[in-house]
């Protein structure tokens, strides 16, 4: 099926269209499921976006050719616009690509003309520029609101210590998204431990350039700090960053003989747990390089202690 065959909005199409990206369905099925559970639980009209292409990571493609990047990214925007949905990204890389592209197209009518010429050649409808791109954090904080999120917390995760990683692209709009992330995490009841490496990049962007520095000097320092502080989990937002965490676990084990035991969890999972879902409801114990057994056991013990 080509992009030209994009369907118009159908009855089963939701208001918010979830743009999954590449890593989420491949490596983080538990986070995908938890995100869907949390969204439905909060009453959001939330479903998968149909007919998506690669987000086209701006960090690579913008340097190669900004016009190529813009034209390829615009295909996702055009699809979302045609389907009449608000495009929602959980991956910071996808978000920044779509967000920057639509912003640039609004600012520069000539680029919009160029992109539309390419879209029409590909058999697609031209882009009007009415599509909205939102990060999942924005959806939760701005559309649902902290009041409703807090009201849905029936199982506060009190006693769980976490470190958190926001990711570079989530800082695109300054401190807005990092603050939303912190507020949402606090609502689940976890204790956030601050460290000097909180702001540091996961290293994914450097991986093309210098794999050693990317693993040992960026993500490695974060993971070693988590190990040293013996936190219960490392909370993340972005599936791109998760890919790097996943890689670091293997590299450290194979090359340094260091086994990390701090599970990397998506913040949707923490929300789902706080909303009363069980780990098995979203497969929290499967497909992970670092098992979540210790975290799940601690949650059980804490729950029994409360009762």
């Amino acid at each position: 099926m080509t992009t030209a065959q994009t369907k118009n909005k159908t009855d089963d199409q939701t208001k918010y269209g979830y743009f999954l990206g590449c890593v989420m369905p491949a490596k983080m099925p538990w986070a995908e499921k938890a995100t869907m559970l949390v969204s439905k639980h909060l009453g959001l009209d939330f479903g998968y976006m149909k007919e998506t292409l690669c987000c086209v990571r701006p960090g690579v493609w913008k340097a190669v050719n900004p016009d190529w990047w813009l034209s390829i990214t615009a295909q996702n925007l055009a699809n979302a616009e045609k389907q009449g949905i608000v495009m929602v990204d959980t991956c910071n890389g996808c978000y920044v690509s779509h967000y920057e592209a639509i912003q640039e197209l609004h600012e520069e009518p000539e680029k919009m003309k160029m992109v539309n010429e390419h879209l029409v050649k590909a058999g697609m409808d031209p882009l009007k520029g009415t599509v909205r791109v939102r990060h999942y954090l924005e959806l939760l904080y701005e559309d649902v609101g902290m009041k409703k999120i807090k009201a849905n917390v029936v199982n506060p995760l009190t006693g769980i210590k976490i470190m958190r990683h926001v990711g570079c692209h989530a800082r695109k709009r300054g401190d807005i998204l990092p603050n939303y992330f912190d507020e949402i995490l606090k609502a689940t009841g976890v204790e956030i431990i601050d460290t000097p490496y909180d702001k540091t990049c996961c290293g994914l962007l450097l991986y093309f350039s210098d794999s050693n520095q990317s693993i040992l000097d960026r993500i490695g320092k974060k993971m070693l700090t988590a190990k040293e502080l013996n936190v219960d989990a490392y909370a993340i937002i972005c599936s791109g960053c998760y890919d790097q965490f996943d890689r670091a676990v293997k590299v450290y084990k194979d090359e340094k003989g260091i086994a990390f035991d701090t599970p990397i969890v998506h913040f949707s999972e923490l929300l789902a747990l706080a909303f009363g879902y069980k780990p098995e409801d979203f497969g929290m114990m499967y497909c992970r390089p670092i098992p979540t057994t210790k975290l799940i056991d601690k949650l059980k013990t804490l729950k029994e202690g409360k009762q």
């Binding site: 340097a63 570079c168 800082r171 290293g203 962007l205 450097l206 093309f208 350039s209 210098d210």
Partner: peptide
């Protein structure tokens, strides 16, 4: 504000040398 991602160096390297090697 810097996160040490190195993307500035990589973008510069590609622009001038057509490589992603930050050096």
């Amino acid at each position: 504000k810097c996160t040490g991602c190195g993307q500035c160096m990589i973008g510069c390297a590609y622009k001038h040398y057509k490589t992603f090697d930050r050096k």
